[in-house]
Nucleic acid binder design. Structure first.
Length: 811
RNA sequence: GGGCGGAUAGCUCAGUUGGUUAGAGCGCAUCUCUUACACAGAUGAGGUCGCAGGUUCGAGCCCUGUUCCGCCCACCA
C-alpha cells in the first residue's frame, strides 16, 4: 500500500532529495552531448548561458528571477525532447570583490598596499575558494537544472585565454588604444571607471559667482561655477563670440584667483549667453565639456588632483587639501580678496559612483580605451534585421538609442583583481609588446627589461565574451561547434548596455555570429508598494528566507506568474503565500487521487462510456494545451502559468474532482473512465506546471506513478510513465486526439443550474439531507446527485430557465 | 534636452491578432470544521479600464492630443 501522504505539502522533505536525484541521474547534462557516445550533430539544441553571479555574492531576488525564468525555459525545452544545455558560472566581479577583501583587510588593520600585489591576490583567491561556492549552492536551491559539469569562472584558465585573444586581436585591429583622455575617476577606489558606472543624482548645491580680473586693469569678467576648487586648474575664460558684453575682452589675459596665473579670454560657440553670467571658466583637465573646448583651442591641461582627490602641487597653497575643504577655503580666501560676487542655491546632477556612491571626479588620465563604434554597427544591424529578437520589443529602441551614440569605452582599471592588461612596456626602447603569450623580451628591440602594465581590465570586458568563452572559444571545441550560438539570453534590463550589447558586439566580432537569437529582459523586483528594495528602507526581501518559509516552488511561481517581460514587479509575501497554497492544492488533489485509486473498477468491456463531465474537462484540457503551447512559444510564461493555475483550481479541482466523487460513488464500472480522466488531466497539469514548480510536481508525479503501478497498472497517462517528470514528454496535440471540444456548452449550462440550485437551497433554507428536485421544461426529470457538500446534475441538454423546485426528505 | 514605459476593483496586477455580461490573488461581507485540502469550500459586494477627442457596426485594446507617475540616455558652467 502507498504510504499515507501528509495533509499539507512538505517542501522541506522533497526539495533537497529531488534535486539530488535529478543530479545523480545526470538529467542536467544535455541529452545529446558531444562528449558522449551516440552524439548526433544534426539535432538542434536549446542553450542558455547563465548571467554569471558575482563570485562573492549572496543570492538576491534578481538571481531568483533569472534562475526561475531560465530554468523554466530549460525544463520546457528538455521536456519537449530537445537537447538542452544551461551553462552555469560565476564572475570575478573586479571592483565588488576587491572591495570586500579590502574591507576585510581594513578590519585586520592592514591594506592591500601593505600586503603587496602578490600577497593580496593570494588573499582574494583564498576568499574565492572559501566563499565562491556559496552563491552556486544557493542557485541550486532554486532548482536550477544547470549542467554543473560545465561550470565556468571568468578568471579560470580558459576564459583568461579568451580575454587575452580578444584584447590582442582588437589591439591589432587598432581598436584598442592607450592615451590621455577625459575619464571618470573614483577617488575612493582610486581607479578609472566607465561612463556606465557613473550615476547622476539631483542634489541641492550652490552656484558660486566671482570675478575673473583682467590682467593689468580693474576690469573683470563675472563667472559662475559649481565647483570653485577647479579654478585652480583653469586655463582659459570663454565667452560667446557674439556677446557684446565681453567681446572687447577676448584676447586679453585674465588672472586666476589666488594663484595669479594668467590665462587667455577666448571666444567659443559652446558658451550659452543666457546661463549664469554668460562667461565660462575653462578647466580642461576636470570637466568633459571644458576638455572639448581645451582641445579646440589648444589650451593647457592642468590636473590639480591627486589620486585620492586631494589637491596636488599645482594647487599652490591648497596642496594637500581635500577637494571639498579646498572649495570652502578657496572661496573664503577669494572673498577676502574681494573677488566674490555672490552664491546662489542651485540644483545640479552630481556624478556618483554606482558602487559606493562617492562623488566622481572627471579627470584627464592615461588609460586604455576600446574604439567601439565599428563594432556597434553590425550589432545594430543584427537587431534591426531580426537576427536577434528582443523581448519586450520596445527595448529595441532603447538599444538603438544607446548603440547609435556609443562612445569609446575605458577598459582599464587601477585594480589588482581581474584580467591583467596583456601589454609589456620596454624600459630600453619604450615600445609596447602586445601578445597572446607572456613575452620574455621586447618585440621591438629584444630587450628583456620589460614590465607588464599594472592595470586590469573592466570586469565587463570578460563578461562580453561569456556565451562563447564558456564553450571553449577561442579553441574550436566540440561544445562551441554544437552549442553555439546559444538560444536565449535572459537577464535584467538594467544590464542591457553593460552586458547584452557588448555580448552582441563581441559575438559578431569574434565568432562572426550573433551569440543568441533571443534576448528576454525581465524587470526589477520592488517591494509590495513599488518601492525599490534597500537596506536603509529595511524592505529587502531575502529569497532564502522566502524559500525557508514557503518553499522554492512558491517563490518561483510567484516570480514567474507575477511578472511580464520588461516590467518591474512588486513582490509581497501575500503573493508567495497564495502560491504556497497553490502547491498545497496540487498536493491535496494528488492525495485525493492516490487515495481513491483503491475504488477503481476493472476496465469494462465495450466502448468507453464518458459522462458529460468527463468530456467537458477533457475538452477544456485540450483547449488549455493549445493556449499553454501558444503562450510558451511567444515567451508569455506568466500568462501560461496563470492559465494553468486557473484551470487546475477552478475547473479541475472545484468541479471535476467534486463530480468525480459522485461518479465513483455510483459504484458502476463506468467509474473506470472517471479514474482514467482524473489521471490524465492531473498528469497533464503536472507536466505543464513542472517548469514553474518543479519540486511539488515531480514529487506528486512520483507518488502517483507508484500508486497507479501498484493498484491500477492499466492506467497510463498520455506520455506514459517515464523515468522522471523532469525529462517527461511535454503534452502535444497528438496526445489529445478524441478530446474534442463541444462538451463545454452543455457543461456551462449544468454549472449554471447547479449554481441556481445552490441559491435556491439557500433561499428556501433547504435543510441538509433534503433533496431538491428539478423539472425540466421538456418534462425530463433530472437526476440530481447529492453529496453532503455539493449537488451535481448529471444530465445535459436542459433549459435553465424552466425548472420547478420542490423539497422533500431523501428516502 | 532626447527617448521609453505605466495609469484597469480597497491593495498588487493580468488582459498580443478590437467582438457577448472586463478577470485573478489578497482584502471585505455572509455561511460551512463537509470523508483531498480551513494553506479549504460555497455565495456575494466592489470597476463610466487617467482625461478629451477620433477611427469602427463594435475600443481597456487602434489613432491624435493631454495630465500625472516611473525609468533610461545626455549633462549648461
Amino acid at each position: 500500500m502507498t504510504k499515507q501522504l501528509p495533509k499539507t505539502y512538505d517542501f522541506n522533505e522533497t526539495e533537497g532529495r529531488l534535486y539530488q536525484q535529478w543530479w545523480d541521474a545526470g538529467y542536467f547534462e544535455p541529452a545529446n552531448d558531444p562528449k558522449k557516445p551516440g552524439f548526433d550533430p544534426t539535432i538542434k539544441p536549446f542553450v542558455i548561458s547563465i548571467p554569471p553571479a558575482n563570485v562573492t555574492g549572496r543570492l538576491h531576488l534578481g538571481h531568483a528571477m533569472v534562475v526561475s525564468l531560465e530554468d523554466l525555459m530549460i525544463r520546457y525545452h528538455r521536456m519537449k525532447g530537445e537537447p538542452t544545455l544551461w551553462v552555469p558560472g560565476v564572475d570575478h566581479a573586479g571592483i565588488a570583490t576587491q572591495l570586500q577583501v579590502e574591507n576585510k583587510l581594513r578590519d585586520e588593520g592592514t591594506s592591500r598596499e601593505e600586503l603587496g600585489r602578490e600577497k593580496f591576490l593570494e588573499r582574494i583567491w583564498n576568499w574565492k575558494e572559501e566563499y565562491g561556492g556559496i552563491i552556486t549552492q544557493q542557485i541550486r536551491r532554486l532548482g536550477a537544472s544547470c549542467d554543473w559539469t560545465r561550470e565556468r569562472f571568468t578568471l579560470d584558465e580558459g576564459l583568461s585565454i579568451a580575454v587575452r585573444e580578444a584584447f590582442v586581436s582588437l589591439y591589432e585591429k587598432g581598436w584598442i588604444y592607450r592615451g590621455p583622455r577625459m575619464i571618470n575617476w573614483s577617488p575612493g577606489l582610486q581607479t578609472a571607471i566607465s561612463d556606465l558606472e557613473v550615476e547622476y543624482s539631483e542634489e541641492q548645491s550652490k552656484l558660486y559667482y566671482f570675478k575673473y580680473m583682467i590682467a593689468d586693469s580693474d576690469d573683470f569678467i563675472p563667472v559662475a561655477t559649481t565647483r570653485p576648487e577647479t579654478i585652480l586648474g583653469d586655463t582659459a575664460v570663454a565667452v560667446h563670440p557674439d556677446d557684446d558684453r565681453y567681446k572687447k575682452l577676448v584676447g586679453k589675459m585674465a588672472v586666476v584667483p589666488i594663484l595669479g596665473r594668467e590665462i587667455p579670454v577666448i571666444a567659443d560657440d559652446y558658451v550659452d549667453r543666457a546661463f549664469g553670467t554668460g562667461a565660462l571658466k575653462i578647466t580642461p583637465a576636470h570637466d568633459p565639456n571644458d576638455y572639448e573646448i581645451g582641445m579646440r583651442h589648444n589650451l593647457e591641461f592642468i590636473n590639480v588632483l591627486n589620486k585620492d582627490a586631494t589637491i596636488n602641487e599645482k594647487g599652490g597653497p591648497y596642496e594637500g587639501f581635500d577637494r571639498f575643504e579646498c572649495r570652502k577655503k578657496l572661496w573664503e580666501d577669494m572673498s577676502q580678496a574681494g573677488l566674490v560676487v555672490r552664491e546662489e542655491a542651485y540644483t545640479l546632477n552630481v556624478p556618483r559612483s554606482q558602487r559606493g556612491g562617492e562623488v566622481i571626479e572627471p579627470m584627464v588620465s592615461t588609460q586604455w580605451f576600446l574604439k567601439i563604434k565599428d563594432m556597434a554597427e553590425p550589432a545594430l544591424q543584427a537587431v534591426r534585421e531580426g537576427q536577434i529578437e528582443i523581448i519586450p520589443e520596445h527595448f529595441k529602441k532603447v538599444y538603438y538609442n544607446w548603440m547609435e551614440n556609443i562612445q569609446d569605452w575605458c577598459i582599464s582599471r587601477q585594480l589588482w583583481w581581474g584580467h591583467r592588461i596583456p601589454v609589456w612596456y620596454c624600459k630600453d626602447c619604450g615600445g609596447m609588446t602586445v601578445v597572446r603569450q607572456d613575452p620574455d623580451r621586447c618585440q621591438h628591440c629584444g630587450s628583456t627589461k620589460i614590465e607588464q602594465d599594472p592595470d586590469v581590465l573592466d570586469t565587463w570586458f570578460s563578461s562580453g565574451l561569456w556565451p562563447f568563452s564558456t564553450l571553449g572559444w577561442p579553441e574550436e571545441t566540440s561544445d562551441l561547434k554544437y552549442f553555439y550560438p546559444t538560444s536565449t539570453m535572459e537577464t535584467g534590463y538594467d544590464i542591457l548596455f553593460f552586458w547584452v550589447a557588448r555580448m552582441i558586439m563581441d559575438g559578431l566580432e569574434f565568432t562572426g555570429e550573433v551569440p543568441f537569437h533571443t534576448v528576454y529582459l525581465h524587470g526589477l523586483i520592488r517591494d509590495e508598494h513599488g518601492q525599490k528594495m534597500s537596506k536603509t528602507k529595511n524592505n529587502v526581501i531575502d529569497p532564502l528566507e522566502v524559500m525557508d518559509e514557503f518553499g522554492t516552488d512558491a517563490l518561483r511561481f510567484t516570480l514567474l506568474v507575477g511578472s511580464s517581460p520588461g516590467n518591474d514587479m512588486n513582490l509581497s509575501m501575500k503573493k508567495v503565500e497564495a502560491n504556497r497554497n497553490f502547491a498545497n492544492k496540487l498536493w491535496n488533489a494528488g492525495r485525493y487521487l492516490i487515495g481513491s485509486l483503491g475504488a477503481m473498477p476493472s476496465e469494462p468491456e465495450g466502448e468507453p462510456d464518458w459522462t458529460l463531465a468527463d468530456r467537458w474537462i477533457k475538452a477544456r484540457l485540450n483547449y488549455l494545451r493549445e493556449t499553454v503551447n501558444r503562450l510558451f512559444e511567444s515567451y508569455q510564461f506568466g500568462e501560461a502559468g496563470r492559465q494553468i493555475y486557473d484551470f487546475f483550481w477552478t475547473e479541475f479541482a472545484d468541479w471535476y474532482i467534486e463530480i468525480s466523487k459522485n461518479q465513483i460513488a455510483e459504484g458502476s464500472d463506468r467509474a473506470y473512465y472517471t479514474f482514467q480522466t482524473l489521471v490524465e488531466v492531473f498528469d497533464t497539469c503536472l507536466r505543464f506546471l513542472h517548469p514553474f514548480t518543479p519540486f511539488v510536481t515531480e514529487a506528486l508525479w512520483g507518488h502517483l506513478k507508484s500508486a497507479c503501478q501498484k493498484t491500477s497498472p492499466s492506467l497510463s497517462p498520455t506520455g506514459g510513465w517515464e523515468d522522471a517528470l523532469i525529462i517527461a514528454h511535454w503534452p502535444e496535440k497528438k496526445d489529445f486526439e478524441g478530446w474534442e471540444r463541444g462538451a463545454e456548452e452543455d457543461f456551462n449550462l449544468i454549472q449554471e443550474i447547479v449554481r441556481a440550485i445552490r441559491n435556491i437551497r439557500a433561499e428556501y433554507k433547504v435543510q441538509p439531507g433534503h433533496r431538491v428536485a428539478c423539472m425540466i421544461s421538456a418534462g425530463e426529470k433530472m437526476d440530481i446527485i447529492q453529496s453532503q457538500r455539493q449537488i451535481f446534475v448529471s444530465l445535459a441538454g436542459v433549459d435553465p430557465d424552466a425548472f420547478a423546485v420542490s423539497s422533500a426528505p431523501i428516502e
